[in-house]
Write a protein that binds this DNA or RNA. Structure first.
Lengths: 202, 202
DNA sequence: TTCGTCATGTAATGGGTTACATGATTAC
DNA sequence: GTAATCATGTAACCCATTACATGACGAA
């Protein structure tokens, strides 16, 4: 997951870890909280060791005598290698079960414009099936327990069901546009054009 | 998380691991996939060692000579101890940052009827703030990138924003009922009464 | 000169997963 | 008698988190 996102972002432009994290936060912000450094840097190291990214010599091109053991200086700019591009393409093409959960789907979707059309369709349909299963489980739970459950559990399931339904509808629209060979049209749904009251409550 | 859910379910009635998993799946199905045995059983062991649950002698009350090293026989019925009840009460009362993410909130909400009113309110408000932050991040990202991003990334953010907005509205309703001293009223929103076409598509 | 933010990293830990292994009970 | 499902568990692993530690650089 992190690996995929990092390769994808570096595919667009080289950057250093800190910047990467900010970009990452923006990209995955719709479905996940920020990534911690404790996972970012070790991952960068792993990717470097795998040969998918390289450190672009930052500034002091010459002397680099014995870097301090801790608290590393100067920015390290990372850049995708040819192998890294291949790896990214590989990840782009996969469409297995991991691709259908919240996180996997989110990250794949974020790079959909680089994904080929048939893979896009397969991912969207797989995701839809996944959500439908969740929905069916909730419908079942609701019809089974009806009356026997407390108001809060009931409300949680009701809300979960509503969200699942909505998600399925969203996916249906996307699948339809895919089939028609069109990119998603932002205009069909509520565009966040005029949000009158961004902090408005109580 | 697992610990909390297990204690909560055993609070309602004693049961064995397999049954527990089914109940668990139903309870958390609205926001999370099923729990695996590889995490369930070790957790049960931990809870037993902590003294929060006990194994209720299943059936063969007498002879229990040298159980086979693997493939354990007979059901093991778990039951909450007095300490376990205390522990559960402790978990019910907490309302920290972990309580506001998807999973933490979901599990707390599922046991809201056993949570006292002021804690309920604090959790709902904390959760709302969390979602508002996500929403604000998305609004920012959308206004910043506008036009510069591809259609899919844009659509992902748009959809994320819409979901966040909806979630905030839901929480607002819940908070309002809490303040009015009422349990959530299922009737206000779409009740899943008449779903005409549960499998209806293409 | 001190504070905030930029910037990089490690160590310890945690909470899960998949795959494996075994066996009892029930329905056909 | 055999297949499905009920039932319990271990081992290896994975991916991430928090807390910690260090230090450069710009602005007040």
């Amino acid at each position: 997951m992190l690996e995929f996102a990092i390769l994808g972002l570096l595919h667009e432009s080289s950057m250093h870890g800190y910047e990467l994290r900010k970009q990452l936060t923006a990209t995955i912000g719709a479905f996940r909280a920020a990534v911690s450094y404790g996972s970012l840097y070790p991952t960068l190291r792993r990717l470097r060791e795998a040969g998918w990214i390289t450190e672009d010599a930052p500034d002091a091109a010459g002397a680099e005598a014995a870097p301090p053991l801790t608290g590393r200086r100067g920015k390290v700019v990372y850049k995708l290698t040819a192998e890294g591009k291949e790896r990214f393409a590989e990840l782009l093409a996969e469409a297995g079960p991991e691709t259908y959960d919240d996180e996997g789907f989110g990250i794949h979707f974020a790079f959909f414009s680089r994904t080929d059309a048939s893979t896009r369709l397969r991912i969207l349909e797989g995701r839809r099936r996944r959500i439908e299963e969740r929905r069916d489980g909730l419908v079942e739970a609701l019809s089974r327990t009806r009356e026997r459950l407390d108001a809060y559990t009931l409300e949680l399931q009701r809300h979960g069901l509503e969200s699942a339904d909505r998600e399925v509808r969203w996916l249906n629209e996307l699948i339809a546009s895919e089939r028609a060979g069109q990119p998603p049209s932002v205009s069909t749904a509520e565009t966040p054009k005029d949000r009158p009251d961004p902090r408005g409550r109580q």
